[in-house]
């Protein structure tokens, strides 16, 4: 039924012998009846008047124009399997929630896979086809209901995605607007500065420039904060109005993975003093020294910007040392090994 084409004839329509090289706009279509490749113009020419047999020699299957489609996968076998899978999964469209236990769901999946395999590899094809038809006829209403539910879900999701996109656009717009305002403000300030300079004497000019600069800095910081506030407000509004975002937040973090078939020691033998964790606090560690552990050498390292940039943090050093201090403290070898 399906022959592997030669490399040479790959880009050529076997019916009209048009070559892709000469007419680069031409596209190939296939029909899931027999998967023979025919160029678009040939399809138009042959099938526009209604169903006609496949023009390939010795094929002769009756094909319809509306069934023709573009080939997605290079390998025709995969293309066919995907088609079968699509059709079957539209019929067998139950989800996990429809089953009381995982076992039953797995059995169901197994059955579906068997059907797909049989159809794809031509094992008991007629019998399987019959079974599928029977199932479809029996469960018609259920299948319909299911697919409607599914499409509802999908449309919800697309709506959510659209909303996210809108939010993004809005943020961008605000940012741009603020930038334009800033530029205008800057120009205005510069003009004022020039005016001031020209009107005052030279001794004062340095001071004026300095003042100006500090003013500018203050303003830019203020603007930054403003922008942050606005965006966070938008975010809040968004998450309030959208049910889907809430779901993600509700997903509570599960118990951490531990490789020791149990939990790590939750009741530590020591109580940790407050250790600065933020970068700002770490840079300012000399002022907090009284509240935390004191080790001049390590505390000096904690301020090192290269280390900070690489993710090295003071508290990991302290926690590790403290953990190791109590790891094995209660193992009394003399006593424990004597028994064994």
């Amino acid at each position: 039924m399906i022959g592997l084409e030669d490399e040479r004839t790959k880009d050529m329509c076997p019916i009209c012998k048009t070559d892709k090289y000469l007419s680069p706009n031409m596209t190939f279509l296939i029909n899931p009846e027999c998967y023979h490749k025919i160029c678009e113009s040939c399809v138009d020419r042959i099938f526009s008047l209604g169903p006609a047999p496949c023009p390939y020699p010795k094929c002769g299957k009756i094909l319809r124009k509306n069934k023709f489609k573009k080939q997605i996968f290079d390998d025709i076998l995969i293309e066919r399997e995907i088609d079968i899978r699509k059709r079957i999964s539209n019929i067998f469209n139950k989800t996990e929630e429809d089953f009381p236990s995982l076992d039953e769901y797995n059995q169901y999946l197994e059955k579906v896979e068997n059907v797909i395999f049989n159809l794809n590899n031509g094992v008991d094809k007629e019998k399987t086809e019959e079974e599928v038809n029977k199932y479809e006829a029996e469960n018609k209403i259920e299948i319909l209901e299911k697919s409607m539910r599914e499409s509802q879900k999908n449309s919800d999701f697309t709506k959510y995605q659209e909303a996210v996109e809108r939010l993004k656009q809005e943020k961008l717009r605000i940012q741009k607007q603020m930038e334009i305002e800033d530029i205008q403000y800057q120009k205005q300030q510069q003009q004022e500065l020039l005016d001031k300079l020209s009107s005052s004497n030279t001794a004062n000019s340095d001071e004026i420039i300095k003042q100006q600069q500090s003013n500018m800095q203050k303003r830019s910081q203020f603007r930054k904060r403003q922008l942050q506030q606005l965006t966070s407000q938008l975010d809040q509004n968004f998450s309030k109005n959208n049910p889907l975002t809430k779901k993600e937040v509700d997903n509570e973090p599960k118990a951490p993975f531990t490789p020791f078939q149990g939990d790590r020691e939750l009741k530590k033998r020591y109580e940790l003093l407050p250790i600065p964790r933020d970068v700002d606090d770490l840079l300012d560690i000399d002022n907090h020294a009284d509240e935390t552990y004191q080790d001049p050498y390590v505390n000096k390292l904690a301020k090192n910007k290269e280390y900070l940039g690489a993710g090295w943090r003071l508290h990991t050093v302290f926690e590790r040392a403290l953990d190791e201090a109590f790891m094995g403290l209660g193992c009394f070898i003399e006593k424990e090994k004597m028994v064994s």
């Binding site: 149990g262 939990d263 020691e265 033998r269 790891m327 094995g328």
Partner: peptide, 12 residues
């Protein structure tokens, strides 16, 4: 699962 103390970790 059974809780594993730090001492147990050292025992391993």
């Amino acid at each position: 699962k059974q809780q594993v103390s730090n001492d147990d970790l050292y025992r391993r």
